[in-house]
Design a protein around this nucleic acid. Structure first.
Lengths: 148, 148
DNA sequence: ATTTTATGTTTCGCGGTGCTTCATCATTAA
DNA sequence: TTAATGATGAAGCACCGCGAAACATAAAAT
């Protein structure tokens, strides 16, 4: 279960240093085989390969005639890259993915249970505003009667 | 059942000293395993791990395609960190969480039954104003017929 | 006075950063 | 056409700095 947010920096070569506390967890699944891809909300997704495969399979099963489905397929599958951390726990993020997510010097690594998300810092702040802006914290209907 | 409000200070390293009266209660659940995370109202939530898990499970069950749901997931799960108090009862609050809640020198620790909330002092005062400003204390309809 | 709480200090180990080396590919010349 | 040299980019290595935890001292309460 991946949790926790940390602000990190990409070095001049586009390498992202994963915090040590998360490395073991990432290495233990799929022998460290990871998949990095693009998310519609303009962030990147980092999955252990075993966790990614069923998602990609599901995506590919969608109708390729529906415009939105096939656009989603193109995004998720098209940008997906297999990779693994180097000996000191860094991920080499390709120029295409860096450009997609607007990653420059500073990035945000955010645990999301089954995977991590990697955000441009400003985009992350905008993301938080979506929740915090709503004064009455209008919750999705699924959460009716639910309380923190 | 956690109750009571106390003003406390973070030391220069971001360590928050939990008042002694609450330590035993926090240690007794989950063998002292705690989860600290972010709340949309810009405060932090401190849960015993066992109490947090079902909440996170519920959050993760929401649609990740809905913008508001996924923003809420990102906030609650993304900022969640497992931790425990050090030998003298202090919590090491990560830079990400400190920045989120605007915690500096002074903080407010507020018991909320199942969990604690940790507030920036000014944000806490503003929070109080929300209730006190409304002259007739207009309550949500759920509280119809309810009286203090 | 003794035990419990609070705060400040120090130390050690490891994590992060930058540099160096190695490999691969491309370009040019023989 | 093949070989050689240079450039680009990835991976390995080493060192330095910081962060976490333990320790110690001071204060307070019972």
């Amino acid at each position: 279960m991946f949790r926790g947010a940390s602000s990190l920096s990409l070095d001049v070569k586009g390498r992202l240093a994963v915090p040590a506390k998360h490395r073991d967890a990432l290495l233990s699944q799929s022998a460290g085989q990871l998949v990095l891809t693009a998310h519609p909300h303009r962030c990147l997704l980092l999955y252990p390969q075993v966790a990614w495969e069923p998602i990609q399979a599901k995506m590919m099963s969608l109708s390729s005639f529906d415009k939105r489905s096939s656009a989603l397929q193109r995004l998720l599958v098209g940008y997906a890259e297999d990779m693994q951390m180097d000996a000191v726990g860094r991920l080499l993020v390709s120029p295409a993915l860096r450009e997609f997510a607007g990653l420059d010097k500073q990035a945000m690594l955010v645990g999301q249970g089954s995977h991590f998300e990697i955000w441009n810092l400003d985009a992350w702040r905008a993301q938080l505003d979506i929740v915090m802006a709503s004064e009455d914290l209008a919750l999705p209907t699924e959460l009716e009667g639910f309380s923190l």
